[in-house]
Amino acid sequence: MDFLRPASWEEALAAKAEHPTAVPIAGGTDVMVEINFDHRRPEYLLDLNRIGELSEWEVGQESVRLGASVPYSAIMEHLRAELPGLALASHTVASPQIRNRGGVGGNLGTASPAGDAHPALLAAGAEVEAESVRGTRLIPIDAFYTGVKRNALEPDELIRAVHIRKADGPQQYSKVGTRNAMVIAVCAFGLALHPETRTVRTGIGSAAPTPVRAKEAEAFLNAALDEGGFWESGKIITPAIAKQFAALASGACNPIDDVRGTAKYRRHAVGIMARRTLGWTWEQYRGAGRTLEGAA
């Protein structure tokens, strides 16, 4: 095993080009577990800790450019207003120690269906800034997840940043685990209201081979809200609409049975979370939401 320590982004790209099998390591929260438990022996470890810019973010007009290594704790602390869904998701990540090290770049690189950031990114709308010595490209988040723990990156590419649309409305995030802290998702659900476009976007975690959006549920809800004039009136969403939305969200799942939960439970729980997060965001939209402590 070789340990590559690039001092700059350019050096990192060069190293990745030279050694496409090199495994990038930033927070180490996935890679080191695999090494400690002898599940993985990469030929090269590519340390990204020395590249300071990866831990920085810029808030732009439309979006936040979030460096790949910005730790979850910083997202929780500094980006609650701009990225409320991702901030909530960040708060559900493992433990304070892990949130101090892990970041969205690692979540995307691992592309586990259980990664906590994915549903929030899908709901908010985002693009992954991937770069190699050949150039830079922006990969829409909807096209990023290509299979179980597989993503759209080329072997020589590294994730430099994620461009996430700034919230133009309330966002929520829920995750089911059988413990009240430090738990991997049994399943998760992210929801973002986009009042500017009068649309709702969603993201489902850990209930399909990849993180997915509940597109039918979104389409149904967008139409129902539009037809009922809900965006203008701000009236309470009728239970029938919420119920149908939840059912369609459940239907968007393609889960498996595993040690963390059954497929049937995952479908069921995603429906409940879809209904609840819709209720919470809509209450916030109407200006009647409760404030939260201990979340984000």
Binding site: V33, D47, Q97, I98, M182
Partner: peptide, 29 residues
């Protein structure tokens, strides 16, 4: 646990509490 689940190896790395089991030795240079 050596998998970041138990916190028994918590140290301050540049002042920040982290699990020492998940920091690669080369990263602390």
């Amino acid at each position: 646990c050596e998998q970041g689940e138990c916190g028994s190896c918590t140290v301050r790395l540049d002042g920040v509490p982290v699990c020492a089991c998940l920091v690669a030795a080369g990263q602390v240079q």
